[in-house]
Design a protein around this nucleic acid. Structure first.
Lengths: 353, 353
DNA sequence: CATTGCTACTGTATCGTTACAGATTTTGTC
DNA sequence: GACAAAATCTGTAACGATACAGTAGCAATG
């Protein structure tokens, strides 16, 4: 047993400015590098006392495994990729989402990498990139479609993922979603309670899954609470606010004008309000309105609008937990969650913002 | 020259499902791995024709260097870290920022990693982490202070970075900033033009650099345009909207009530408006108001408020370009930029949103 | 005492890349 | 034609970690 071996780090004390590696610990404890590695993983073939010693030293010198080393050897990246459209930035759903995800990842070894793509181009692009380069251990996607090619691809290639929104392909996969059907249904209830009967829905773009959900809830509401739909399909929440406003102003001026509105997005609601007012009408008087609200602004500036808060930060947390669960091999059906709408009471002094 | 060498990949044709490596190209071209590596880097000691051949094959098979390999060998991570407070999420400045950064990084090898920290804790935490683990090649920080320990640390340790906001430590470093002094000055001009004389400023928290900038511009404006300040220092834009509203309502009810307001944040402006209205007064009538607006909402819902759009997405782009420049060794003084306020005309139908 | 089995530990090879120090061939010079 | 100087190309080692196949020591077994 002499000093010329490679594994035993005895011959070469580590330079002291550098960050500690397994070799450093091996040197300090007099053990082999392999032993140290296995001790830190709590492998069964290492003695209890040795493990304790190794752990102590590792902690003392602040050892943190080199990610590149681990990644090269094992393929584990310790990265979660959040795939985003550069365009889904109207009113920034991204911020609270990133925060929510970060909150969960902070307690783990995972880093969050943002992988953007231009939605005008191939949405499969970033997924392929991740698959080809092994860039992440897990992926979070949004703007989910009923038949989503990304879901198919990731499932086939066994890349753990979670979707923000559900699919309808018979594939059981992790997701987090907001109950948009329930939201629309309850929104209709509230409008009819105020005597509104001619209702309109500002809906999500037709290709996304929650378009149908919201539509269904809306229509079920109409039926159950006795109201009729005013058609407004030519614009949706993905359109520019100006487009929404102009279209809605026109509608409000026509004989078709609705007396109740359900808005699938807070930003859209602002445009709708502008349209209503351009048409010389008033919310809370000529029409009532229920909307999703990502923040409290509407409640402060237009308290007559009924708002429903969708907690995107919570969604971020749920999504992060779900991908990690998927990576750890938990069964997908245990990684699905649906959050329920919470309608808000009118603005009061006591509410924290 | 036989097949038992290591570098020459001849003996072992690469398995075909796996992603291509230098070895794959070496096998296909019959060259050594080293040669391939150097050819792809356009090293001077490789023949022109060889380089061409290697590049062609590399492109054909879609070779992309393994990041872990590069990182392990060279220490280059190809990562830019965006350091964020989990709390700076009121009204989500983060979204457009991330988008702007991504736009620039999309054309490079860099990935964007979001590194959050709890602002209640040590802001140096994430910086130390990045330094200790070599987690990134460059860092973007915000909430910059006049004497910023993070800047000192990163400068000392030679970690390339850029700040969103300036410092006052005599250290020349890359930054992007918005000209808050000019904003406040111009805001005062506009208010005085409307005959307002008793002005109040909703300011940034005192520890951040742009607090002084905004304050200075405000006061210079007061002097130049002949108006006086109404004190309102006990709340700032970091406080909760409820706190701002309540404090401002009180002020508006007092004999001290201002007739002009400059708001350093769009979210804060909403709270101020609520405060004004709770006090039974009206914007555009009893008081005028100028505010920064991160989005167009205010203009839609309260067109009487004068808004100034701060382009955070642009800031993201500038910051990304600056860090990369810093990483590439460009002199810091060439990586500084200041964006000028652009006051907006009142809402019109033609404006795209 | 030889054999077996167990516990605790260790060396080697490897992931993909690049720095470095050759090696080989071609070209140039006198 | 001999020799030096370029011009090209290549092998080895190393970055830090881990899978795998050992080895050494010791107790139990017959």
């Amino acid at each position: 047993m002499d000093g010329k071996t490679k594994n035993r780090a005895a011959a070469a004390p580590p330079p002291d400015g550098a960050r500690p590696t397994l070799k450093t610990i091996a040197f300090m404890t007099g053990l082999g590098i392999t032993t140290v590695s296995r001790a830190l993983k709590d492998a069964p073939d290492i003695g209890a006392e040795t493990k304790e010693r190794v752990r102590l030293v590792a902690k003392q010198i602040g050892y943190q495994p080199n990610r590149a080393g681990v990644r090269l050897r094992t393929g584990k990246t310790n990265v979660i990729s959040l795939v985003l459209t550069l365009e889904e930035e109207i009113m920034g759903i991204t911020s609270p989402m990133v925060v929510g995800i970060s909150e969960i990842l902070a307690g783990t070894q995972y880093h969050l990498v943002v992988t953007p793509y231009s939605s005008t181009k191939d949405p499969l692009g970033p997924i392929r990139y991740i698959l080809d380069t092994g860039a992440a251990d897990g992926v979070i996607i949004s703007r989910t479609e009923p038949h989503d090619a990304r879901v198919t691809l990731m499932t086939e290639r066994r890349l753990p993922f979670v979707t923000h929104g559900r699919t309808e392909m018979g594939i059981v996969h992790p997701f987090h979603d907001f109950d948009n059907e329930r939201f629309a249904y309850e929104a209709v209830r509230r409008l009819t309670e105020r005597g509104r009967r001619r209702l309109v829905l500002l809906e999500p773009p037709p290709n996304l899954t929650f378009h149908a959900h919201m539509r269904t809830g809306f229509e079920r509401g109409l039926k159950d609470f006795g109201a009729e739909a005013v058609s407004f399909h030519h614009v949706n929440i993905d359109h520019s606010l100006v487009a929404i406003r102009d279209a809605f102003e026109q509608l409000m001026r026509s004989v078709e004008a609705p007396d109740g509105i359900v808005s699938g997005s807070g930003a859209g609601a602002v445009a709708l309000i502008a349209g209503i007012e351009s048409a010389g009408k008033k919310v809370g008087q000529d029409v009532d309105m229920v909307t999703k609200a990502p923040s409290d602004f509407l409640r402060w500036l237009r308290p007559e609008v009924m708002t429903m808060y969708e907690d995107i930060r919570l969604a971020g947390r749920e999504l992060a937990k779900a991908v990690i669960g998927h990576i750890e091999g938990k069964p997908p059906e245990t990684l699905q969650s649906l959050s329920q709408p919470e309608f808000q009471r009118p603005m009061s002094k006591s509410r924290k913002v």
